[in-house]
Deep mutational scan, measured.
Amino acid sequence: HAATELTPEQAAALKPYDRIVITGRFNAIGDAVSAVSRRADEEGAASFYVVDTSEFGNSGNWRVVADVYKA
């Protein structure tokens, strides 16, 4: 099962156990969220919340930071 994305309210009520950072070329924010979901799932997380997204220069590469939560 894939890790689910939390709302800001849900994330605020929970304590993350880790923070992950992924970088890559994403065509849309949805693609980045899917990549975070896969990584969170690999780490055994039940859910995640994207904290920050930023573009690296003009290369089209993105850096996505997310907190991950157990259950």
Rank of each mutant, 00 (worst) to 15 (best):
N58H: 12
D31K: 04
A40W: 03
N61T: 13
E42I: 10
E55D: 08
A28F: 09
A32F: 06
I22R: 00
R38C: 08
A3G: 03
D18H: 11
S37C: 09
R19T: 06
E43G: 08
E43L: 15
T53H: 11
A46K: 09
G60Q: 06
E5R: 14
G24Y: 03
A2N: 12
I22W: 00
I22D: 00
I22A: 01
A32E: 01
E9Q: 10
V64C: 05
K70R: 12
V36L: 10
Q10T: 05
F56R: 05
G60I: 04
S37W: 06
D52C: 15
G44W: 05
V51A: 03
T4E: 09
V33D: 01
F48K: 01
S59H: 09
S47V: 04
Y69W: 01
P8V: 10
T7H: 05
F26G: 02
A46W: 13
G57F: 07
A12T: 08
I29N: 04
G60S: 05
P8R: 14
V21C: 12
A12D: 06
F56I: 15
H1T: 09
A35K: 04
V21N: 01
D67F: 14
F26A: 01
H1I: 07
D41N: 15
E9H: 08
Q10G: 05
A28I: 07
A13M: 13
E9T: 09
R19W: 05
R63I: 14
A71C: 12
T4P: 03
A71V: 11
V65S: 04
S34P: 04
A2H: 14
R19F: 04
L14R: 11
T23D: 05
G24L: 06
G30A: 14
D67C: 10
F26Y: 07
V21D: 02
T7W: 03
V21W: 05
E43S: 11
V50M: 07
P16M: 04
I20P: 00
E55W: 13
V64R: 02
L6E: 01
F48C: 04
V51M: 02
S34V: 13
G60E: 07
I20K: 00
V68D: 01
A45C: 11
Q10W: 06
E43P: 01
S54L: 13
A35D: 03
A28H: 14
A32C: 10
R25C: 09
R19N: 00
A2D: 07
V64E: 01
H1P: 09
D18M: 15
A12H: 08
Q10I: 06
S59A: 11
V50P: 02
W62I: 09
D31Y: 04
F26N: 00
A71L: 10
R63Y: 10
T7C: 08
S54V: 14
V21Q: 05
A71K: 11
A66R: 00
V51N: 02
Q10F: 05
E9G: 08
E9F: 10
S54R: 13
F48I: 01
A13W: 10
V51E: 00
H1L: 07
R38V: 09
A40N: 03
G57D: 13
G44Y: 04
A45H: 06
A3L: 08
A35F: 06
E5Y: 07
N58R: 09
V64Q: 00
V68N: 00
F26T: 00
D18S: 12
R39M: 10
A28C: 13
R39A: 11
V51F: 04
V21A: 05
A40T: 04
F48S: 01
V36N: 01
A66N: 00
V21R: 02
A12Q: 10
T53L: 15
Y49P: 01
W62Y: 10
V33W: 09
A71Y: 12
A46F: 11
N61C: 15
R63S: 07
S34F: 10
V68A: 01
L6C: 05
